[in-house]
């Protein structure tokens, strides 16, 4: 490991030796964290203060209170959180499977109409959701081909997000870079398509899995138009819907919105840390072998 350590990264910045580099490095890290995370952390501190002043940032509050959280719970935030968990759990699982499968076809097969399919998939990402809302709601109430009504069910928030152009696009680009030799060897050994897909191609997609996992999580977690259209009443609300209501509800203050946001944020951070591990594993294993 030590021999190749200096070749682990493109810049060699994070592995550079020497006391000067050490200081420079930590300075750079500090700037990055302050610029990107500082403002958010300090605002979230306001989730614990009684009245947030919207003109200044505080890192150390004068008075700490859990009132904002209590009021957020009064507004049913816990239930919304559970709904969000359910939707993101099943939604992400489906989304990854569907993306991998579609990407396999697009990256590893040549077939007539491939470019059209690719373009169709890209086009699904082009229309703003705010506009599609009404036509989409008609479809949700009576799904074409099967004729099922998905409104009022959490399933209605899961199935439509199972296919996501971005994941497919990212996976396709990554799969294209996987050498074909392994696949051909497996084919000569008599392995079928599914076998090749699951045991040859999938394991090589690990770093990319981390990426689409993280982005997929954020995408589903932040979904707001779809749950709005699907939910019949507040019992099926997810957290982003509740955040929108809290933002403009004149009866509650900024503190309650921040408290709810903090609750919404934690799972994303945890998911990110967890999937980064997966992502990192892909990275280091590649480095060691290289």
């Amino acid at each position: 490991m030590s021999r190749t350590e200096r070749f682990d990264t493109a810049l060699g910045f994070t592995t550079a030796k020497g006391p000067v580099m050490r200081v420079v490095r930590w300075l750079v890290y500090a700037v990055c964290v302050v610029v990107f995370a500082g403002p958010l952390l300090s605002l979230l501190v306001n989730a614990f203060t009684p009245v947030a002043k919207p003109t200044e940032l505080t890192l150390i509050p004068d008075e700490i209170t859990l009132d904002n959280f209590a009021r957020a719970f009064d507004r049913g935030v816990l239930g919304y959180l559970l709904n969000s968990f359910f939707v993101v759990g099943f939604g992400l699982l489906l989304q990854i499977l569907v993306s991998l499968s579609a990407a396999y076809a697009l990256a590893r097969k040549r077939f007539p109409g491939m470019r059209l399919v690719f373009l169709l998939i890209l086009s699904t990402m082009m229309l703003p959701e705010e506009i599609l809302a009404i036509p989409l709601s008609l479809v949700l109430a009576d799904v074409p081909l099967v004729g099922v009504d998905l409104t009022g069910t959490l399933l209605g928030m899961i199935i439509p997000v199972a296919a996501w152009g971005f994941s497919i696009l990212v996976m396709t680009e990554f799969m294209k870079e996987i050498p074909v030799e392994l696949e051909e060897a497996a084919r000569i050994d008599g392995a079928g398509e599914f076998r090749i897909f699951f045991s040859v191609v999938l394991p090589l997609c690990r770093p990319a899995l981390g990426v689409i996992g993280i982005f997929g999580f954020v995408m589903i977690w932040d979904q707001y138009m779809l749950p709005l259209l699907v939910a019949d009443d507040a019992g099926q609300y997810t957290l982003p819907l509740a955040l929108r209501t809290l933002r403009t509800d004149p009866e509650v203050g900024l503190g309650v919105l921040l408290a709810a946001s903090l609750l919404a944020l934690l799972p994303s951070v945890i998911a990110f840390l967890a999937m980064q591990r997966q992502f990192m594993k892909g990275l280091t294993s590649g480095a060691i072998k290289g």
């Binding site: 499977l97 569907v98 993306s99 499968s101 579609a102 396999y104 076809a105 697009l106 097969k109 399919v117 169709l120 998939i121 086009s123 699904t124 229309l127 599609l132 036509p135 989409l136 008609l138 479809v139 949700l140 799904v143 074409p144 081909l145 199935i159 439509p160 199972a162 296919a163 497919i168 398509e193 897909f197």
Partner: peptide, 18 residues
């Protein structure tokens, strides 16, 4: 076969609304 799940979902929830 591999594209079917994605395309069917897109057809129902993206293309038809579009």
């Amino acid at each position: 076969v591999f594209l079917a799940p994605a395309l069917l979902i897109f057809l129902a929830f993206k293309f038809i609304p579009m």
